[in-house]
């Protein structure tokens, strides 16, 4: 009822193995993410996984900001990690308009296990010096917990750049929404 055994067993195992910690501290200085940079606004714990940089405070099941830096034609949003799904991950096609880019992100989330994904308010937005897009989303995770998200992205020189914030709808999305919006305002492209 509370949580599934597999999750518990897996995390307990992870916890008892000693080894290098994969998370690093993100301090308040402007942070270069490759094709763009942001001011973090608060301290985050960061992790690199499958070509994506991930920032969290409490753990990615609760809140996380995902940064995609220059997804090229033919590439998926991230390298498939768990390999449980027999469906192929969607691949970015250059060039994509904003509708297609949103579909690419949403379908990737759906194949990765998010359910009942609802997008709203797809609109033009600045991505540094470039014309980009934003949209909002709602979803449910594998356990049925409601989540909310927002995305800011742009296709620049045929590559996709993305900032995606996903968090539990209850408490966490609102708790970190402020710093994320300020982070978005601070975004610069070279």
């Amino acid at each position: 009822m509370i949580m599934n055994m597999r999750g518990l067993a897996m995390v307990v195992t992870l916890a008892t193995l000693s080894g290098c910690a994969p998370y690093n501290l993100v301090t308040l200085e402007r942070r270069d993410l490759g094709g763009f940079s942001v001011e973090p606004q608060i301290e985050w714990s960061s992790l690199e996984n499958g070509g994506i940089e991930i920032w969290t405070v409490h753990g990615t099941g609760l809140e996380a900001v995902y940064f995609a830096d220059g997804i090229a034609d033919g590439e998926p949003l991230f390298e498939q990690r768990f390999g449980e799904s027999d469906k192929p991950l969607p691949r970015f096609r250059s060039p994509m308009n904003a509708n297609e880019a949103m579909e690419f992100v949403v379908d990737t989330l759906a194949i990765s296990g998010a359910g009942e994904i609802r997008t709203s308010a797809l609109r033009p937005a600045e991505f540094g010096a470039h014309a980009g897009f934003r949209f909002d989303l709602g979803y449910r995770d594998a356990s049925g917990l409601e989540g909310r998200g927002l995305a800011l992205g742009a296709v620049i020189d045929g590559r996709l750049y993305l900032l995606l914030y996903l968090a539990a709808a209850e408490h966490y999305f609102a708790a970190y929404g402020g710093p994320v919006e300020r982070m978005i305002d601070s975004l610069e492209t070279p």
């Binding site: 904003a98 509708n99 949103m102 997008t119 709203s120 308010a121 797809l122 609109r123 033009p124 897009f133």
Partner: peptide, 8 residues
């Protein structure tokens, strides 16, 4: 939901 984008 995508009317702003379509207008642009």
């Amino acid at each position: 939901e995508d009317r702003a984008m379509v207008r642009s």
